[in-house]
Simulated assay, not measured.
Amino acid sequence: RKDIAVIPYEPRYQSAFKALNEEWITAHWEMEEPDHKALDHPQEYILDKGGHIFIALYRDEPVGVCALCKKDDPEHEYELAKLAVSPGVQGKGIGVLLCRTVISKAKELGCKKIFLESNTLLRPAIRLYRKLGFKEIPKSHPAYERVDIQMELVID
């Protein structure tokens, strides 16, 4: 872990943010319109709306990303989204570090519940979310066709 650093997003990492997410999405599904918007224009669709993006560097190379997206929802103020870790470095705890960084930022912002959408086909991700305390909630208006599970984390 000494070779891993999680840092706030900078525009120079936009191509890595996009490529890392496209890699996992297209391994199983087609890219959808909300993917293109967030990945092509993270400044406009995530950061300018009050969200945050974090980049995991392994030996100074961007190998993981995760976003905390501000939602227009009274129940869930923020969403953990766009978590991606390069297959070559999976298993090094990078996903955990990214998620914990996002959760910590949400807590700092006064958030009480974080929401996420995923797919149960992504077993390692679902295990990670459960390990971090996310619980499954009834599915409602998913943003993507591929979503078959929605979860929330109550922050104390």
Score class of each variant (00 low, 15 high):
D3H: 15
E10R: 12
Y13K: 07
Q14V: 12
A16H: 05
F17S: 02
K18W: 09
L20S: 01
N21F: 01
E22C: 09
I25A: 04
H28N: 13
M31V: 07
P34F: 00
H36W: 14
P42M: 06
Q43S: 13
Y45K: 10
I46P: 00
I46H: 01
L47F: 10
K49F: 04
G50W: 11
G51S: 05
G51C: 07
H52S: 13
I55W: 01
Y58M: 07
Y58A: 03
R59E: 14
V63F: 01
V63R: 07
C69N: 12
C69Y: 04
D72M: 14
D73V: 06
H76S: 11
Y78M: 12
E79T: 08
E79D: 11
G88A: 13
V89A: 11
K92A: 12
V96D: 14
I103W: 06
A106L: 12
K107H: 10
K107A: 14
E108R: 07
G110N: 06
C111P: 01
K112Q: 15
N119D: 06
N119I: 03
N119T: 08
R123Y: 13
I126V: 15
L128A: 04
K131G: 01
G133H: 08
F134K: 03
F134S: 05
F134P: 08
E136A: 10
K139H: 03
S140A: 12
H141W: 11
Y144T: 02
Y144K: 03
R146M: 08
V147M: 07
V147N: 01
E152G: 05
V154P: 09
